[in-house]
Design a protein around this nucleic acid. Structure first.
Ligand SMILES: [Mn+2]
Ligand SMILES: [Mn+2]
Ligand SMILES: [Zn+2]
Ligand SMILES: [Zn+2]
Lengths: 155, 155
DNA sequence: TACTTGTTGATACTAAGTCTCACTAACACA
DNA sequence: TGTGTTAGTGAGACTTAGTATCAACAAGTA
């Protein structure tokens, strides 16, 4: 078993654990979908991508989107917000400090690869912004767009 | 004529000017739609909001969405990317330094009011992020979510 | 004023999901 | 290790947020 496969298996187990802890059932369709999602780690995908892959095994359209929604609620998946829409999903790595309320990412506009920032580049600015605008700040979402190392090398 | 009305009239003229400069025709349906949009300044709205308002005057559904797209291309409108989707639009104020590639906003999650930041709170961090990740950074999109002064006072 | 071509509205269509419901299978409990 | 309860499932209709097509129309130009 390769390193990456081990990482993926651990991610699958982690997500299944979250599912159980939250009182949801671990079903065959969910296991299959989570395995497919884990294989796309750090690479974004659409609901249709997933459905196309899982449909042959008998998995239904509604189940795909229901489970995507559930995984977003559990904080495991989030959506990419690109200029052409927000129908792409990506795994939020465990223990990355990211949540639906706090998200700092780099997205490659060519291949869709996603990197999460280790530290929030706005930590210091937020109090000042709240002061200046009168807003009470609850969270933020930063998407930096560009080309990943591989894609910019391929030019 | 009130202050706000004068501001709105100026905004309408500004947008119509952009339209002409870009070689598009100034038509009656476009003038009406732009007036409706200007009345929503700093407040977000959906395509359906606009259609509901303009339909009685005979304006068609396709025209509403076509024109919304055109105004996005001209940089006059942008979409809000909220956790429940990206179907809300907002006017990007002229000379705010914002564009589809560079967007820094505060959004009230209760009333939808939008404020644009005067200075980018990440100016300094971007070079360091590019260095650390190997990405070539082209632009970014920051949405800070919270409660505007009025909405947080109303608690 | 007439011409040319961009724009319009009606209508059909699509993409990305969501809802309903009869059926099925997880899993808590015996 | 069965059994019952109820969460989860797949098929298919439906919805939301647009987009494509196309004949009729009108803005800008000459
Ligand atoms: Mn942050
Ligand atoms: Mn910025
Ligand atoms: Zn890339
Ligand atoms: Zn508010």
């Amino acid at each position: 078993m390769h390193r990456a496969d081990a990482g993926r298996a651990a991610l699958v187990d982690y997500i299944l654990g979250l599912l159980e802890q939250a009182g949801h059932r671990v079903t065959e369709p969910r296991v299959q979908l989570i395995q497919a999602v884990a294989a796309w780690e750090r690479q974004s995908f659409t609901g249709e991508d997933l459905y196309a892959e899982l449909r042959p095994t008998g998995l239904g359209r509604a189940t795909v989107f229901r489970t995507l929604r559930l995984l977003q609620e559990l904080g495991v998946l989030s959506r990419l917000h690109l200029s052409d829409g927000c129908q792409r999903y990506v795994v939020t790595p465990p223990a990355s400090g990211h949540s639906p309320e706090h998200m700092d990412r780099l997205i490659c506009r060519r291949c869709g690869r996603v990197a999460y920032l280790d530290e929030c580049p706005m930590e210091d600015s937020l109090a000042r912004i709240a002061q200046a605008t009168g807003y009470r700040v609850d969270g933020h979402h930063l998407d930096i767009v560009g080309l990943c190392a591989e894609c910019s090398a391929a030019r």
